[in-house]
Computed example of a mutant assay.
Amino acid sequence: MSPVSETHLAHRLNLRLNVEPSEIGGIRHTVIQHIGSWECAAIADDVILVVSELLANVHEHAEGVCELEIEHQDEGLVVKVSDTFMTPPTLGHRHGSAETGRGLLLVDALTDHWETTITGTGKVITCTFGTPGRGISP
């Protein structure tokens, strides 16, 4: 993985990325290490799947340039992916034989809440994951 820049704080990981499909595995590895250090193993698989899907979308729709921020809070994790593509993603229903288009259904199923905010330079997708027994309010 070759992040443009990387910041590690006690409870926050911030990566500026040029996403290539071959590097998503390395990014996942970095995220797993941080989630483990924050003792959030119970939600790690869900977080990794959502991060992978959002980064694949960045590669496909936003020329691969994004910022990934993951913050550990008392109630769980907040994941933000910012890119320069101003069109918000839409949650749709795909035909069972479709080969693509199910990613946001996965995001919707695995997060406590997710939303898109359009900014002056693109958009931010924010996803919340509560730890078992706790939840993060939208």
Rank of each mutant, 00 (worst) to 15 (best):
Q33S: 09
A109Q: 08
H34W: 05
G36Q: 11
D112E: 13
F85M: 10
L110Y: 03
L106P: 04
G101P: 05
E23H: 08
G103A: 08
G26Q: 12
V78N: 01
E115I: 00
H29V: 00
T100K: 07
D46Y: 00
M86W: 08
T117I: 13
S82E: 12
L54W: 06
S97K: 13
H95D: 14
G96N: 10
L91S: 11
N18S: 15
V65P: 00
L54D: 05
H72N: 14
V79A: 01
T119R: 07
T90Y: 12
I136T: 07
T30K: 04
P88A: 12
P3R: 04
G76E: 03
T7H: 10
M86E: 14
G130H: 01
I24D: 05
G76M: 02
E60L: 15
L104C: 04
I35Q: 05
T119G: 06
S97H: 14
S97R: 13
I43S: 03
L17Q: 02
L9G: 09
I35H: 01
V58L: 07
H11E: 12
H93Q: 14
S137A: 15
D83Q: 03
E60K: 14
D46R: 02
I35F: 02
H61K: 10
V58S: 06
L55T: 03
D108C: 08
R28V: 02
H93E: 15
L105W: 04
P132N: 02
T87D: 12
A62L: 11
V107G: 03
V124W: 00
S137D: 15
E115C: 10
E39N: 14
T131Q: 11
T126C: 07
N57W: 06
G133N: 09
L13M: 09
L106S: 06
D74A: 13
T121Q: 13
E60G: 09
L91Q: 13
W114S: 00
N18W: 12
D83S: 03
D112M: 06
A62C: 11
P89A: 12
E67S: 14
I35D: 02
I136V: 12
E69H: 00
R12N: 14
A41C: 10
R134D: 10
T119N: 08
G64K: 09
V51G: 02
F85D: 09
M86H: 13
E69Q: 13
L77N: 01
N14Y: 08
V58D: 06
G101S: 04
L105Q: 12
S82I: 09
I32P: 03
R134F: 09
T116C: 15
D45K: 03
R28T: 01
T100V: 11
H61Y: 15
H59K: 11
G130W: 01
E75T: 05
H8F: 11
R12Q: 15
E39T: 09
L104G: 01
K80N: 08
E39L: 09
E20T: 12
L91T: 08
T116P: 00
H72L: 06
G130R: 01
E23K: 05
K123V: 04
T131F: 05
L106F: 05
C127W: 04
S22Y: 02
L54N: 04
G120I: 06
L49G: 01
I24M: 10
